[in-house]
Design a protein around this nucleic acid. Structure first.
Length: 327
DNA sequence: AGAGTAATAT
DNA sequence: AATATTACTC
């Protein structure tokens, strides 16, 4: 699989045995790693400088070496970066991007001095590490550098989660529904804009296909069956999604001061059905009025939810929405 | 910066 | 099969 961790690991073992950097410059080392390798080399060399100097001194004293013959080393030593300029040994040798590329993770090892600089994790270790990701909803994110190097478990769009999605899109109106605002309105902790964007893309394709059937078939999708759309079929598609041209279907939500609606979330859907659509061109809820509401944590739902990690049928860790009250 | 889309990867 | 990621355009 990945040759790079192997190379690094070999170098590391070699260094521990005292073979400092002998082959570090070898062409086998991929170019991208060279900088990190050099840092390692300097670290290793610095750490043995005192021993070498001591050794040379003794040789000079014994008359086995002339003083000027040892000068090269002192000069060489001066050109070395100071310890402060060096990367700490406990830090990973490879960049975060490379770590992602090769599925390597930085183990936060307690004893940096003797621990391997780079440790290739077994798949089991990777699993258990990513498992914690779902639960870590409120981490401060201040100094946790390796958090970015682990890949987040893939999201499972449960019918409940999809329903939130559909409700959010319905609230915004199809024209205004964009990943970011949908995400905010869904108020599901751990849900990313990318998650929503990806889902939205597929959902739009689904709607497009549905429109082809909606004239002759039931609005609720009796005519569109493919197993592909299994999930989308689980939540009824609001009729106006299918006829974006007619009756000013976007931003059909009446002008109801959103604040008035806080705390009555479950009734919203019933309510807005009875309002007529605003005339053409009247903007649905200017952004200014939306913002405060979202900051207060208001959503279509009476409660927000948290994505938690679970184990899927195939044994993989995934993020799922566990029902939280009003679904 | 973020949205939309198609293609592609996992 | 479902979801993520990427590359590109707007």
């Amino acid at each position: 699989m990945s040759e790079i961790p192997l190379v690094v690991d070999c170098v590391n073992r070699s260094a521990q045995k005292g073979n400092y950097g002998g082959t570090l410059g070898s062409p086998r080392v991929p170019p991208l790693l060279q900088n990190e390798m050099m840092m390692f080399k300097f670290s290793a060399q610095l750490s043995i400088v005192p021993s070498i100097l001591k050794y040379q001194k003794s040789k000079i004293l014994l008359g086995e070496m002339r003083e000027e013959d040892s000068n090269w080393f002192a000069k060489w030593e001066e050109e070395l970066p100071s310890p402060k300029e060096l990367m700490h040994l406990s830090q990973t040798l490879i960049t975060p991007n490379l770590a992602i590329a090769f599925d390597i993770q930085n183990p936060n090892t307690p004893n940096p001095k003797i621990s391997p600089l780079v440790h290739t994790l077994s798949s089991a270790e990777l699993e258990s590490n990513s498992a914690e990701l779902g639960g870590m909803a409120g981490s401060s994110g201040v100094g946790d550098e390796p958090a970015r190097t682990q890949k987040r478990p893939r999201l499972v769009w449960t019918p409940q989660l999809h329903k939130r999605f559909v409700d959010a899109v319905a609230q915004l109106g199809i024209k205004n529904a964009v990943p970011k605002t949908i995400m905010q309105l869904m108020s599901v902790d751990g849900l990313t804009r990318e998650n929503v964007a990806s889902h939205l893309q597929k959902y739009r394709l689904y709607l497009k296909r549905m429109q082809g059937f909606s004239n002759s078939c039931s609005v609720y999708g009796a005519g569109v069956d493919p197993a592909t759309y299994h999930l989308f079929a689980s939540s009824p598609v609001p009729a106006h999604f299918l006829h974006p041209g007619r009756g000013n279907s976007d931003h059909y939500m009446p002008f109801v001061p959103v604040v008035a609606v806080i705390g009555h979330a479950p009734q919203i859907q019933q309510q807005y059905r009875h309002f007529g659509s605003p005339p053409n061109g009247v903007p649905f809820l200017p952004r200014q009025s939306q913002q405060p509401v979202q900051r207060m944590g208001t959503s279509v739902h009476s409660s927000s939810s948290v994505l938690e990690s679970a184990t899927a049928a195939n044994g993989r860790k995934v993020l799922t929405l566990f029902p939280n009250g009003d679904d």
